[in-house]
Write a protein that binds this DNA or RNA. Sequence first.
DNA 1: ATTTCATCTGACATGAGCGG
DNA 2: CCGCTCATGTCAGATGAAAT
Length: 209
Amino acid sequence: MTWWKRHFGETTRGRIVALLRRGARSVEDLAAELGLTDNAVRAQLATLQRDGVVAAVGIRREGTGGKPATEYGIAPGAGTIFSSAYAPVLRALLDVLEERHSRQELVSLMRSVGRRIAPDTAAKGPLDKRAKAAAALLGELGGDADVVPVDGGYEVRGHGCPLAQAVVGHPETCRAVETMLAESTGTTVREHCYRSNGAPCCRFLITAA
DNA sequence: ATTTCATCTGACATGAGCGG
DNA sequence: CCGCTCATGTCAGATGAAAT
């Protein structure tokens, strides 16, 4: 079951999302199809907009006068929340790569992936600022992280791992993140992630380059 | 300016879940 | 059972934007 179905199920929000996945609709359209008032739809739309799931995608003009209706649709970039395919596809891809390549080649591949997903511009300034930028980047990927001063540098400690499903069984995945953080902060990054079956957690030691 | 209709706001009702 | 909270929904009226 996909995240959004688990999250919204057969609630009004879930029904609104299901309708908007089929095409853009106005508040009036949604209210008519759901058998609700416009205000009830608006309340749910406001929540969905706040969560970044839906967005105003256009204007529809009907009749002669009056304010044109806003059309709502699925927010750009929200498409991935409707899919549960990414994790199994990534795991399978890593399985195949592992079968066909040596561990050394796999690590090299992961480093290339890390360079590719790193932002174009690297963070600048003192080391603590760069460490915070690394934690923020990890956060953007879904890995809530803190920065802790340690001997010789800083440690970025994630609460959970954004690639947990891939990391368990393919620890070299962490090398991609390690490289991404090094590229994006212009520092030396060493991963020593905690990889239990239950809940892997990111640990990256950041020192001056 | 007037008209029309979308949108917003606030008050209120209802039902489910929960703890005492 | 009662009281409380929260989510959800309705209703009425106000406001705003665009066409005439």
